[in-house]
Design a protein around this nucleic acid. Structure first.
Lengths: 351, 351
DNA sequence: ATTTAGCACTCAATGCTAAAGAGTGCTAAC
DNA sequence: GTTAGCACTCTTTAGCATTGAGTGCTAAAT
């Protein structure tokens, strides 16, 4: 591995570059970080680090710039050691703002993203309720005079979804209740994907006489569910990234905006991160999608009753301020999770 | 008013500038549009037009550029005369793409915006269901075992909204039906704002024994309704505007993105247009918001059963290609309206 | 009374060169 | 192993002359 001095030099370059966005030269380091060696020595070390793939230079007479590999090393180290808390004042401020109003879940999430972007001056994102993890609590069929039958599906997390269904032949209230009971018996407590599994290979012999109706209902249940699976994604503070000097170029800006507009792609990238960790960091070319190979994404999860529901994230150039952003986003996701669970509890307990 | 030659010169400059984004000089006009006069004459005319406020020059030795006043004149004339249809092939193509799948309303609208942006190469926007115009079709209270009571509100336009309500004391099924009937009797057929009005000044003497429950219900009905009033707004093809040379400047780009992010502001601007017309055009500084005083917005409405439901629009620099865009967006809104109404009909008629 | 040709003047854009500055890599001495 | 010294590379900036498109004015032509 890298010896201690190489590490120090590397970190100095990373920190310097994060702050200045300018390639870092050997003299700068020998002056500012007192390693007690001259610039020539640093130069040699830098040359080694370049050979090892941690540094590169934009052109032959410029200073060095950290590579994605360097950031990865740095970030992994950071995640290992950095247990420090978010500044208590800032934390309280965040809590206060988020808890000030009794928002609905989606509002809370979206406002969090706004606040996160405002506080950090980075572009933020949220991926909201990912229903794969939530479970069906209740299904009810309700007759609605001339409109037919309304299927109401209520989830674990308080989200309700309805679909209207118009049967060919009238169904009696008794039959309706029979089906409701059957559906509840069958699906209650199952997660969305489990239901999707079951729908495929069930022959409904248990309620043979209502088989036809059930078969009519399947596509409706299916589409209700697929609706729940879809994930909403918003960005806040998109312009923030354009403040970084690397995005002074209009074509870079265009690339970024295109990226932000392509929700499907982003969801794909996000879903490829290990959901096990609380914090996930994708650095530059670690994602597969070439046009954004020089941006990094930090995400954290938020939970309802211990289940991961969605993600908040920050987006910036690969030289983003990982140290502070990790701290901030950790604090944020913890606060969101807490307030969210208070909200859910409130919603159930008070009348 | 302007004599014929002045008008010809002005239109020549407008058309030229729309195409080239470069200030138009007197020689260009005397050459390309055969008015049979020399550049010196044109120069005099241009000088007059400048004095009248239709033209300006970026600097003393540049050609002339049309002012917002000039665009307004041009566009008003266009709207008066331009009755030509969208190219029949393009129109069919649009129809085919939009009708290809049985989308839900929101999907249809959003995909329309995508298509609109792709076809025109301009940034597009949609403001989706504005529930102020829609009416309540049915209200139903449904008992949901341990969760309490679910209020389902179904609108005119097929949109369904539900809220859960947990009463302090249990309510019998009979009472529930009584209230449901009362609510339906009271509110069916009313528009959202009409209900909001009624809620304030009704004393519910007609169902005196259920007064307390009703009073509990009011805030719930209120918030359900307020949810329906809110308008969704999306942009598609945001990067498209960055292709225009006037947006090569990163600060201009930032201004535009900030504008796009400020949904409330945009809704405000849109709602200030006369909803009477099919086509509305806001040119540059005609909107009050300074940072976007050099973009124009063209909007058209789409309808369900004759009621204006939302808007589609195109956004670009003030020198946007009004002629073609007006044609295209007219075709689009007509197609959307048509397909939307088919969709609604389908939803009701088929099983 | 218009219209036009001619000309001086303005201003942005382009291309060129020179100089400055920051940094590297190598070599030879410590 | 470390460092001072120096030649070399490459970008950035400023300055400057040139070009070219366009205007405004005036005096002559229609």
């Amino acid at each position: 591995m890298l010896d201690e001095r190489k590490l120090k030099v590397l970190y100095a370059i990373i920190n310097g570059y994060i702050n200045s966005a300018e390639p870092i030269g050997s003299r700068t380091i020998s002056k500012h970080c007192d390693l007690g060696v001259s610039s020539a020595t640093i130069r040699n070390e830098m040359s080694d680090l370049e050979e090892l793939g941690y540094l590169s230079k934009p052109h032959s007479s410029a200073g060095r710039v950290p590579s994605d590999k360097a950031y990865r090393l740095y970030v992994d180290e950071l995640l290992k050691w950095e247990k420090s808390q978010l500044d208590i004042n800032l934390n309280n401020q965040i809590r206060e703002i988020l808890a000030r109003e009794q928002w609905e879940i989606e509002e809370l999430i979206q406002n969090s993203a706004k606040l996160l972007s405002a506080i950090t001056s980075y572009t933020s994102l949220v991926a909201s309720p990912k229903m794969k993890a939530s479970r069906v609590k209740h299904i009810q069929l309700v007759p609605i005079d001339d409109l037919g039958i309304l299927m109401v599906m209520i989830c674990d997390t308080g989200i309700v979804k309805n679909s209207i269904y118009k049967p060919e032949e009238p169904i009696s209230l008794g039959q309706l209740n029979l089906i409701s009971n059957f559906l509840n018996h069958k699906f209650r407590g199952l997660s969305i994907d489990e239901i999707l599994m079951q729908l495929d290979n069930d022959d409904f012999n248990e309620i043979y006489e209502l088989r036809d109706i059930m078969i009519d209902l399947i596509p409706i249940i299916n589409s209700s569910i697929e609706d729940l699976v879809s994930v909403d994604l918003y960005f806040e503070g998109i312009t923030k990234i354009l403040n970084f000097p690397e995005y002074r170029d209009i074509d870079k800006a265009k690339e970024f905006i295109s990226f932000v507009e392509d929700k499907d792609l982003i969801l794909d990238i996000l879903s490829n991160t290990s959901t096990s960790n609380d914090i996930d960091i994708i650095i530059g070319s670690e994602n597969i999608y070439a046009p954004i190979k020089d941006i990094s994404i930090i995400t954290a999860t938020y939970k309802i009753r211990g289940k991961t529901i969605g993600k908040v994230g920050l987006v910036g150039p690969t030289r983003m301020d990982y140290l502070n952003l990790i701290k901030t986003i950790k604090g944020f996701s913890a606060n969101i999770t807490e307030i969210l669970n208070l909200l859910i509890k409130d919603q159930k307990d008070t009348k």
